[in-house]
Protein backbone atom coordinates (compact mmCIF):
# COMPACT_ATOMS: atom_id res chain seq x y z
CA UNK A 1 0.00 0.00 0.00
CA UNK A 2 2.70 2.47 1.02
CA UNK A 3 4.67 1.56 -2.09
CA UNK A 4 1.69 2.29 -4.35
CA UNK A 5 1.04 5.66 -2.69
CA UNK A 6 4.73 6.52 -2.96
CA UNK A 7 4.88 5.53 -6.62
CA UNK A 8 1.81 7.56 -7.57
CA UNK A 9 2.93 10.66 -5.69
CA UNK A 10 6.49 10.35 -7.01
CA UNK A 11 5.15 10.34 -10.58
CA UNK A 12 2.93 13.34 -9.76
CA UNK A 13 5.84 15.22 -8.16
CA UNK A 14 8.27 14.64 -11.02
CA UNK A 15 5.67 15.37 -13.70
CA UNK A 16 4.78 18.61 -11.94
CA UNK A 17 8.45 19.56 -11.63
CA UNK A 18 9.07 18.97 -15.33
CA UNK A 19 5.92 20.96 -16.04
CA UNK A 20 7.26 23.91 -14.04
CA UNK A 21 10.52 23.88 -15.97
CA UNK A 22 9.03 23.27 -19.42
CA UNK A 23 5.80 25.24 -19.52
CA UNK A 24 5.90 28.44 -21.55
CA UNK A 25 3.22 30.25 -19.61
CA UNK A 26 4.12 31.31 -16.01
CA UNK A 27 0.53 30.67 -14.88
CA UNK A 28 0.78 27.06 -16.07
CA UNK A 29 4.14 26.77 -14.27
CA UNK A 30 2.49 27.93 -11.04
CA UNK A 31 -0.29 25.33 -11.42
CA UNK A 32 2.27 22.58 -12.06
CA UNK A 33 4.03 23.78 -8.91
CA UNK A 34 0.79 23.17 -6.97
CA UNK A 35 0.77 19.61 -8.30
CA UNK A 36 4.32 19.02 -7.04
CA UNK A 37 3.59 20.60 -3.66
CA UNK A 38 0.49 18.47 -3.09
CA UNK A 39 2.48 15.36 -4.03
CA UNK A 40 5.11 16.30 -1.44
CA UNK A 41 2.32 16.77 1.12
CA UNK A 42 1.15 13.21 0.37
CA UNK A 43 4.67 11.96 1.05
CA UNK A 44 4.64 13.84 4.38
CA UNK A 45 1.42 12.03 5.33
CA UNK A 46 3.06 8.75 4.32
CA UNK A 47 5.85 9.52 6.81
CA UNK A 48 3.38 10.36 9.61
CA UNK A 49 4.16 14.09 9.42
CA UNK A 50 0.53 15.16 9.38
CA UNK A 51 1.09 18.66 10.70
CA UNK A 52 3.72 19.37 8.06
CA UNK A 53 1.41 18.03 5.35
CA UNK A 54 -1.28 20.48 6.45
CA UNK A 55 1.21 23.34 6.63
CA UNK A 56 2.58 22.37 3.22
CA UNK A 57 -0.86 22.66 1.63
CA UNK A 58 -1.91 25.79 3.53
CA UNK A 59 1.35 27.79 3.33
CA UNK A 60 2.87 26.56 0.07
CA UNK A 61 -0.07 25.67 -2.15
CA UNK A 62 -2.31 28.21 -0.45
CA UNK A 63 -0.23 31.28 0.28
CA UNK A 64 2.98 31.11 -1.74
CA UNK A 65 1.51 29.98 -5.05
CA UNK A 66 -1.33 32.49 -4.69
CA UNK A 67 1.34 35.15 -4.13
CA UNK A 68 3.07 33.99 -7.33
CA UNK A 69 -0.19 34.13 -9.30
CA UNK A 70 -0.97 37.53 -7.79
CA UNK A 71 2.38 38.96 -8.92
CA UNK A 72 1.99 37.36 -12.36
CA UNK A 73 -1.39 39.03 -12.79
CA UNK A 74 -0.17 42.32 -11.27
CA UNK A 75 2.78 42.55 -13.64
CA UNK A 76 0.90 41.19 -16.64
CA UNK A 77 3.71 38.77 -17.50
CA UNK A 78 1.26 35.93 -18.09
CA UNK A 79 1.97 35.87 -21.81
CA UNK A 80 3.78 32.85 -23.14
CA UNK A 81 7.55 33.00 -23.21
CA UNK A 82 9.36 31.96 -26.36
CA UNK A 83 11.41 29.00 -25.16
CA UNK A 84 13.01 28.07 -28.47
CA UNK A 85 15.46 30.94 -28.68
CA UNK A 86 18.58 30.71 -26.57
CA UNK A 87 19.86 34.12 -25.41
CA UNK A 88 23.20 32.72 -24.30
CA UNK A 89 24.85 30.32 -26.73
CA UNK A 90 25.11 26.81 -25.33
CA UNK A 91 23.10 27.59 -22.19
CA UNK A 92 20.71 24.65 -22.50
CA UNK A 93 23.29 21.89 -23.14
CA UNK A 94 25.48 23.25 -20.35
CA UNK A 95 22.51 23.38 -17.98
CA UNK A 96 21.64 19.78 -18.88
CA UNK A 97 25.23 18.71 -18.23
CA UNK A 98 25.29 20.54 -14.88
CA UNK A 99 21.94 18.99 -13.92
CA UNK A 100 23.09 15.49 -14.85
CA UNK A 101 26.32 16.00 -12.91
CA UNK A 102 24.38 17.25 -9.89
CA UNK A 103 22.04 14.26 -10.01
CA UNK A 104 24.99 11.89 -10.42
CA UNK A 105 26.88 13.33 -7.44
CA UNK A 106 23.83 13.38 -5.19
CA UNK A 107 22.81 9.91 -6.36
CA UNK A 108 26.26 8.57 -5.52
CA UNK A 109 26.00 10.08 -2.06
CA UNK A 110 22.59 8.48 -1.56
CA UNK A 111 23.66 5.07 -2.84
CA UNK A 112 26.86 4.96 -0.82
CA UNK A 113 25.45 6.61 2.27
CA UNK A 114 22.02 5.04 2.77
CA UNK A 115 23.26 2.28 5.05
CA UNK A 116 25.04 4.84 7.20
CA UNK A 117 22.20 7.34 7.22
CA UNK A 118 19.48 4.93 8.26
CA UNK A 119 19.78 3.12 11.56
CA UNK A 120 23.03 4.70 12.68
CA UNK A 121 21.48 6.81 15.40
CA UNK A 122 18.13 6.24 17.05
CA UNK A 123 16.65 9.17 18.91
CA UNK A 124 15.25 8.70 22.38
CA UNK A 125 13.09 10.66 24.80
CA UNK A 126 11.02 13.55 23.45
CA UNK A 127 12.44 13.31 19.98
CA UNK A 128 11.60 9.69 19.22
CA UNK A 129 8.81 9.30 16.70
CA UNK A 130 7.43 6.01 17.99
CA UNK A 131 5.97 7.27 21.29
CA UNK A 132 2.32 7.93 22.11
CA UNK A 133 2.41 11.67 21.34
CA UNK A 134 1.02 13.01 18.07
CA UNK A 135 3.47 14.56 15.63
CA UNK A 136 2.30 18.13 16.33
CA UNK A 137 2.66 17.60 20.09
CA UNK A 138 6.17 16.22 19.60
CA UNK A 139 7.17 19.06 17.28
CA UNK A 140 5.81 21.69 19.65
CA UNK A 141 7.70 20.20 22.57
CA UNK A 142 11.00 20.16 20.65
CA UNK A 143 10.48 23.55 18.99
CA UNK A 144 9.91 25.38 22.25
CA UNK A 145 12.65 23.61 24.20
CA UNK A 146 15.65 22.62 22.06
CA UNK A 147 14.93 25.09 19.26
CA UNK A 148 13.51 27.99 21.28
CA UNK A 149 16.28 30.34 20.19
CA UNK A 150 15.78 29.39 16.52
CA UNK A 151 12.06 30.12 16.86
CA UNK A 152 12.89 33.59 18.19
CA UNK A 153 15.26 34.20 15.27
CA UNK A 154 12.52 33.04 12.91
CA UNK A 155 10.15 35.60 14.38
CA UNK A 156 12.75 38.32 13.80
CA UNK A 157 13.27 37.06 10.24
CA UNK A 158 9.55 37.26 9.48
CA UNK A 159 9.41 40.81 10.83
CA UNK A 160 12.39 41.81 8.69
CA UNK A 161 10.77 40.22 5.64
CA UNK A 162 7.50 42.10 6.13
CA UNK A 163 9.27 45.44 6.61
CA UNK A 164 11.56 44.73 3.66
CA UNK A 165 8.65 43.88 1.35
CA UNK A 166 6.87 47.10 2.30
CA UNK A 167 10.01 49.20 1.76
CA UNK A 168 10.83 47.56 -1.57
CA UNK A 169 7.37 47.91 -3.13
CA UNK A 170 6.52 51.34 -1.71
CA UNK A 171 6.17 54.08 -4.27
CA UNK A 172 8.19 57.18 -3.42
CA UNK A 173 5.89 59.76 -1.91
CA UNK A 174 5.79 63.33 -3.16
CA UNK A 175 7.88 64.72 -0.29
CA UNK A 176 10.58 62.07 -0.94
CA UNK A 177 10.72 63.02 -4.60
CA UNK A 178 11.02 66.72 -3.70
CA UNK A 179 13.78 65.98 -1.21
CA UNK A 180 15.78 63.92 -3.72
CA UNK A 181 15.18 66.57 -6.38
CA UNK A 182 16.81 69.22 -4.22
CA UNK A 183 19.87 67.14 -3.53
Amino acid sequence: MAEAVFAVSAVLILAGAIGVVASRNPVHAALFLVQTLVGVAVLFVLNDAHFLAAVQVVVYAGAIVILFLFVIMLLGVDKAEELRIEPIFGQRPLAAVVGAALAAVLGTVVITGTDVLTGLRRAGGDRALDGDATDIERMGRVLFSDFAFAVEITAALLTVAVVGAVVLTRRASRSDVAASGDA
Partner: peptide
Protein backbone atom coordinates in the same frame (compact mmCIF):
# COMPACT_ATOMS: atom_id res chain seq x y z
CA UNK B 1 11.38 8.94 9.85
CA UNK B 2 14.29 6.59 9.14
CA UNK B 3 16.24 7.78 12.16
CA UNK B 4 13.15 7.91 14.37
CA UNK B 5 13.87 11.57 15.14
CA UNK B 6 11.46 14.50 15.07
CA UNK B 7 14.38 16.79 14.20
CA UNK B 8 13.76 16.22 10.49
CA UNK B 9 10.25 17.58 10.76
Amino acid sequence: AGLNDVGGQ
